[in-house]
Simulated scan of single mutants.
Amino acid sequence: MYRSASTGVIGKRLPIEIISKNIPQLVEGLTPDGILSAAEAILTTDTHPKVVWKKETIGDKEITVCGIAKGAGMIMPNMATMLSFILTDAAIEAETLEKVFKEGIRCSFNSISIDGETSTNDMAMVLANGKAKNPTITGRSQDLELFRNLLVDVLVKLSSMIVKDGEGATKFVEISVVNSKEYHNAAKVAFSVANSNLVKTAFFGEDCNWGRIISAIGASGVDIEPEKINISFEDIMVVKNGVGTGIEQEERASKVLQREEFKVVIDLNSGSSNARVFTTDLSPEYVTINANYRT
């Protein structure tokens, strides 16, 4: 059994005959350390391979979860122009594995955006062979939470690596929306901010232009109460109850924007649900890369 996966120029057909002809050779070439070669083989505009592995003891057996991924542009849920393959030697029933995998995807690959662009080509796959010989994990196992945390940790790290390697990116930004009425609303607000070109260019320019963030929140379509909104860059609050906190706070926040990584916290003060999205700035290099993609 084999599965095909691809990204690349939309509409360009894969050379299936060549691929099929070489499958036996690929099978013969399988090695324990082949994961590193696979991680490099799937790259396109990525600048480096993305590999993560973690170990945990379940019962008296050590299990491993290892993952590889590719992606650097056209990244926004549902996943988009990215591939990820997760492998584990854990013994776990298929239904339970599928459930925890989908849960993990929601807070990882479906919670990132580099440029707000979706694609026709994306997938994430998880495979388990049971070689660890641990007691089989089911939906009722006490060890399920250990496995879930291990899997989610790998997925989140891989998705973060994709964003950090974003085409032309100079900033890695976490947009955290807290105290929303519902998770769905929090996620819509987070993505609206993360995908705003004006917000992203302000990040690139290290400009604490919180007005653009307020505008993106309003454009999300979520029913909000502006007079309740607080906005902070890390722990520097620049908006309190919908009103700016002054030039001194903005100057302090601008220093936060000079970092390669930082967090923007948007407090809607309307509930108890939270959502997080990883994103980037938008630089001239992104335009250059995509203007010359096929030339």
Rank of each mutant, 00 (worst) to 15 (best):
Y2R: 04
S176F: 08
P226E: 14
K171S: 05
S4A: 06
S113E: 07
A72H: 01
T136Q: 14
M237L: 05
L155F: 08
K157I: 08
S4W: 09
L43G: 04
V173N: 01
A216K: 04
S160T: 13
N209F: 13
A169Q: 07
E174F: 00
L146R: 14
V222W: 00
G8F: 12
V189G: 05
N197V: 01
R212F: 09
N121E: 14
A80R: 09
S119G: 12
S160N: 15
F101R: 10
G139T: 14
T280G: 10
L87Q: 11
T288L: 05
Y183K: 13
L158M: 09
E103W: 04
V51D: 05
S141H: 02
A72D: 06
M123R: 06
F262I: 00
K240N: 11
E260R: 08
K157Q: 15
G8Q: 05
L268A: 10
S192H: 03
T295H: 13
T64G: 00
K99Y: 13
G71Q: 05
S273Y: 14
L87M: 15
P24V: 04
A5D: 06
G168P: 07
L150W: 08
L127D: 02
I58K: 01
G11P: 11
S20C: 02
D165Q: 08
N121T: 00
L97C: 08
A132E: 03
N241P: 01
K133N: 14
H48Q: 13
A190L: 07
V100E: 07
N179W: 02
A253W: 04
G8D: 07
I214G: 00
R252M: 13
K255S: 13
L151A: 05
I10P: 04
P32C: 12
I86T: 15
V256Y: 02
A69E: 10
T81R: 12
I75G: 05
G218I: 03
K99H: 11
I114T: 04
L151R: 08
T81P: 11
V277W: 09
Q258D: 04
E182V: 05
F172S: 12
I114Q: 07
I86K: 10
L87T: 14
V287W: 00
A186R: 08
L43K: 15
I105V: 15
E93Y: 06
K255Y: 09
L97S: 11
P135W: 11
I105G: 00
N241H: 02
K55G: 04
S84T: 14
P49G: 12
M125Q: 12
E225K: 14
L158P: 03
M76F: 01
E145T: 15
M125R: 10
D207V: 02
K255A: 14
E17V: 10
S4M: 12
G244R: 02
V154P: 08
I16C: 02
G139Y: 02
N274S: 15
D165N: 11
Y286E: 09
S196C: 08
K70N: 07
G59W: 03
I23V: 15
F278L: 15
